[in-house]
Amino acid sequence: MNIFRLAGDMTHLLSIIVLLLKIYATKSCSGISLKTQELYALVFLARYLDLFTDFISVYNTIMKVVFIASSLAIVWCMRLHPLVKRSYDKELDTFRHYFLIGGTFVLALVLNEKFTLQEILWAFSIYLEAVAILPQLVLLQRSGNVDNLTGQYVFFLGAYRAFYILNWIYRYLTEPRFTRWIACVSGIVQTGIYADFFYYYFISWKNNSKLKLPA
């Protein structure tokens, strides 16, 4: 475990806490894409299959349980909670995310470390995570104004994968046989997708103005 990876996991955890806070405190999920939340729940379920078979460390196990539980809780909240679900922007959240699931699954069948179910699902979860934010970014573009908590949520989510890239560089330099091309390339693509959001987020932070995304 190195500082970059710990920082990455903590910002990832922070993004989920910010989102839960926003939904719980305001009892509203306006501006949040349910499709992105469903994709993240799928990412964690597909990736953490080894939760009960391979024990890595207490930290690893606890974080996996937290990520699976929180992502399912958010999806449950947005779909079933009587108060929250009313504020869901159903007509704005129209990204066809089933194409993302299909496309990344096919890619995982072709590009994986080993043609076993667990490895294919792991690669699938890595590719899906890279594109899972797209429905959310499209929703933000459509709704134009970004409320602070949602903006912070997306910002921390982007920052976490950026820290992971530093972690992979560090591990590549310090561990003789560390190669993780699938996660690395996919992680770079994922961080790249946030680039434009980061740009507007930084501009709004510098001008101390409201975050506006060009429609």
Partner: peptide, 10 residues
């Protein structure tokens, strides 16, 4: 044979 990279990352 190269031991499979253990998936120790989240």
């Amino acid at each position: 044979a190269q031991k499979e990279q253990e998936k120790d990352e989240l």
